[in-house]
């Protein structure tokens, strides 16, 4: 509790935090709002995008792109502690290194929860306005996608956290995080067999929010082998634990 209270003190008064969160909310609202006019194979997706219960799947897929922003926020929050040398001061003042890492892990949980609640509010808002079917059964039909999104957001941020503790400089850590998640790992995916690469971390996190309409695409081309969201949860939790432990180990082994 003490750890969380301290993190809140630091974050809530940090202008950068509010700027990034405002960007997160604003861009996501815009994308959700305008995605209905996206053209797919010559016809507009239209308001059917907001139909319950598939809305949860679509919204969590949209939110998936913004996990990068949350990851960058986590990197900024962690590397700040290095540049202000406050991590060092906290260890001097009596905090253990594991606690210092755990505090940041709790921040990722908090941010993921915030993102999930935001998604829930957006979903209910757009759904209740535009959805054809607003029965209780439809509204809560696929709401479990929100929990997949939560795990995914935590996973993305833990990956970012690992790079932040590894590199300790904000710019370089952000580049490394983006390079790994968007370039290096995808390249590896191409090189190795689908049956193996579907277990790689970014792919596992990605499978938690499947591309809407993937089953149609799969019907047209050869099906890609990805884990279903339900099956991806377990390896995702495994990677989250691994990344947290690796971060603790890194901080323990090095001078501050």
């Amino acid at each position: 509790m003490n750890l969380i209270r301290t993190e809140l003190r630091k974050i809530l008064q940090y202008p950068t935090f509010w700027v990034i969160m405002a960007t997160y909310v604003l861009l996501q609202v815009l994308l959700i709002y305008f995605s209905s006019s996206l053209m797919v194979s010559g016809q507009s997706l239209g308001k059917s995008l907001y139909d319950f219960p598939n809305l949860w799947m679509r919204f969590s897929y949209i939110a998936y792109f913004f996990n990068l922003l949350l990851g960058i926020l986590v990197i900024v929050l962690i590397t700040d502690e290095y540049s202000y040398r406050t991590l060092r001061q906290q260890v001097i003042d009596g905090r253990s290194r594991a606690e210092a890492v755990l505090a940041k892990f709790y921040v990722t949980l908090g941010l993921a929860a915030t993102g999930t609640i935001f998604l829930l509010v957006m979903g209910l808002l757009f759904g209740l306005i535009y959805s054809k079917d607003t029965s209780i059964g439809a509204i809560f039909g696929k709401i479990d996608y929100l929990s997949y999104f939560f795990v995914q957001a935590v996973g993305y941020m833990c990956m970012a956290m690992f790079f932040a503790f590894l590199i300790r400089k904000s710019g370089l850590a952000i580049i490394a995080f983006l390079a790994w998640s968007k370039i290096v790992e995808p390249i590896i995916h191409y090189q190795i067999d689908d049956s193996i690469d579907r277990f790689m971390p970014m792919k596992v996190f990605g499978s938690l929010t499947p591309t809407p309409g993937q089953e149609i695409i799969d019907g047209l081309t050869s099906p890609t082998m990805v884990l279903s969201p339900g099956w991806a949860v377990l390896p995702a939790l495994f990677y989250i634990a691994l990344l947290v432990l690796a971060s603790i180990l890194l901080v323990r082994l090095r001078d501050l």
């Binding site: 003190r9 630091k10 008064q13 940090y14 202000y84 040398r85 406050t86 060092r88 001061q89 001097i92």
Partner: peptide, 11 residues
């Protein structure tokens, strides 16, 4: 205190 005062500049 070690080397420099270490605080959050925005607080």
């Amino acid at each position: 205190l070690l080397e420099t005062p270490n605080f959050y500049p925005y607080l």
